[in-house]
Amino acid sequence: MFTRIGLFLLTNLAVLVLASVVMSILGVNSTQMSGLLVIAAIFGFGGSIISLLLSKFMAKRGTGAVVITQPRNPTERWLLDTVARQAKAAGIGMPEVAVYDAPEINAFATGANRNNALVAVSTGLLHNMSEDEAEAVLGHEIAHVANGDMITMALLQGVLNTFVIVLARVVGGVIDSALSGNRDGGRGFAYYIIVFVLEMVFGLFATMIAMWFSRHREFRADAGGAQFAGRQKMIAALERLKLNHGQSTLPNQIAAFGIAGSTAKKLFLSHPPLEERIAALRSSTVA
């Protein structure tokens, strides 16, 4: 928790310092900049925090996941028992456990905090993985919860959103003034078009940063899965994913928390290539 909060504070400080430097270079009024930073932070973090708070509800709605309240068969009993055992080992509260109907081999974890999370698996996973492989996947998802990855991603996205909003308007104002020769601070219609375009461009760079961090999280979650289920089981699960890997059908807001990623260009991948994940586990010291 301390590392996560420290990272959050340092990143925010870096954003403020960079914004101040840009403001000084471009001659932006400090009072105007302060107001812009406040508004940008409200909008930037507001969306991320709301998404985090609604993540379980939206995940259930988006995937049609059905929470297991009373096990109806041995498979559901095994799922509950395995998640309960791993959650206890990780020192977190018992997550809700759900199953959603999808042919792909996948699973995800989400939730606003580590003691009120949701772990869901696809019917494709249950039909195509052995118990050992499924156990490793569940361990991977429990590691996401225990590491606080959902909260960390929300904080990071809030910082990036704020940065995009501020930088687009600062740079947009300078470009608009240079093009129009306007010196009285007024903004024409062109300014809003420029800001819109800049938000799209800076947003792409922000997405690259978020996805880089997401890929880093996956290695940690794989290590967690190896710790909770065993390294060979985790490697076997990833090998199975490699054999059956297809396009993820998870909604965008939870795709980064699935065991399997997308097939986008590498800079926009939420998950590292399976070959890299397997190699990292083979070289690890986890038993």
Rank of each mutant, 00 (worst) to 15 (best):
M58H: 04
A14L: 14
L241N: 01
G158T: 05
Q227G: 00
M211T: 08
L160M: 15
D222V: 03
L198Q: 03
E218W: 04
F205K: 01
N12S: 11
T123E: 14
S55Q: 07
K88E: 14
V21T: 10
V97A: 05
K265P: 08
A221F: 04
M94L: 11
G188M: 11
F202G: 00
L54N: 12
F163Y: 12
A143H: 05
V159R: 01
V17C: 09
I5K: 01
V137D: 10
L204T: 05
Y100D: 06
W78A: 10
A98Y: 08
N73W: 09
T249S: 13
E96F: 04
H216D: 13
N147R: 09
S48R: 03
G246I: 07
L198S: 02
G173E: 08
H245I: 08
L13M: 11
A226P: 05
H271D: 05
M153P: 00
I209M: 11
S214L: 06
E199S: 04
T285S: 15
V201M: 12
G185D: 09
G188A: 08
G62R: 02
G47E: 12
M150W: 05
A223K: 07
A178Y: 08
V137C: 08
T11L: 15
S24Y: 10
V171R: 01
A84W: 00
H245G: 01
T123L: 12
M234F: 13
N252T: 13
F43Q: 02
G203R: 07
L54D: 15
E276A: 12
I105Q: 04
I194M: 06
G27M: 10
T162M: 15
G246D: 10
L7T: 02
I105E: 06
L138G: 03
G246V: 13
G111T: 07
M208L: 09
R4P: 00
V145R: 00
D132T: 11
Q247I: 10
S262K: 00
R85A: 13
E218C: 05
A255Y: 03
V15R: 00
L179D: 01
V164R: 03
K242D: 14
F45P: 07
I194C: 02
M94T: 00
R220L: 12
E276S: 12
Q253G: 03
R187L: 14
L18G: 15
P71H: 09
E76D: 04
W78Y: 09
R183Q: 14
F196A: 08
S34F: 15
H140Y: 11
L13K: 00
Q232W: 09
A112Y: 15
S122H: 09
R277W: 14
H127S: 13
W212V: 00
L126Q: 02
W212P: 00
N161K: 06
S34W: 07
N161Q: 12
F257L: 10
P273C: 09
M153G: 13
R277Y: 13
A112S: 15
T31I: 14
I142S: 02
G188Y: 11
L80K: 03
V170K: 06
R217N: 08
N116P: 01
H144E: 04
A221Q: 04
A40H: 07
T207E: 13
G27I: 04
G188R: 03
A221G: 02
L250D: 11
V97D: 02
Q253L: 15
L7I: 01
A264H: 09
E239V: 03
G62K: 03
A264D: 14
M1T: 06
I50D: 06
G181M: 01
I278Q: 12
G203V: 02
A120H: 05
L267P: 05
G62I: 06
P251H: 07
